[in-house]
Design a binder for these strands. Sequence first.
DNA 1: AAGTCCTTCAACCGCCCGCTT
DNA 2: CAAGCGGGCGGTTGAAGGACT
Length: 228
Amino acid sequence: MGRSPCCDKVGLKKGPWTPDEDQKLMAYIQEHGHGSWRSLPSKAGLQRCGKSCRLRWINYLRPDIKRGKFSLQEEQTIIQLHALLGNRWSAIATHLSKRTDNEIKNYWNTHLKKRLIKMGIDPMSHKPKNDTILSKSGCLKITTNLSHMAQWESARLEAEARLVKQSKIQSMSLNPLPMQLNSSACSMTSTIGPPSEYLDLDKDIVHEKGNEVWEYKILRMKWRSLMT
DNA sequence: AAGTCCTTCAACCGCCCGCTT
DNA sequence: CAAGCGGGCGGTTGAAGGACT
């Protein structure tokens, strides 16, 4: 059976949000929380569908959002995480506090992807375009390790997401158990980890262009930063 | 100054997944 | 177990503004 549309589209407004609509949405959420997105628009007096409200809140109105130029550190983090995770923007966003998945996705598509292409790096595989030559000369091991690392990282992120969800549920029930969560998170990260080969690998891939230096210290460095 | 092309990014769309009934 | 629903995600679009001719 086909699913019903997320909202009754007749009479609902689309397109850019007006300051008045923003104000209504913010005022409502600050007072009541968003609750069910589907029912929020009518309660808040908005002629929008719930999805549109959710998107507007998450990507623009939320108070804990950082806007403006991405720092070099942020750019490097995005590139490193993209190498590991691919186009999993929401997963990447969890590692860049105050940045939204939409913003990261846009920044990748409009800036970083083009920059990598200019540097002769395939933005999807994060490998130099003339990869076949490099593979023969030893980079194959790095590529293989990256693939293993990505698999492990995927699993770790999923576990982390579960913990966050669990934490939210517990805090909402006014009976948070931060110590338990922290200890379980610690035990997870200390007992589960990448194979020792990742920790021993010292090879970095470095590309230079003009004043820009891009370091692909994905393996050892990334692992360390994820644990901090 | 006017017209065209290019870039950016907010917002929409469709699909998927997990939960509930 | 299957259907229905809501939320979330990634891909795509199109308006707006800037750059270029």
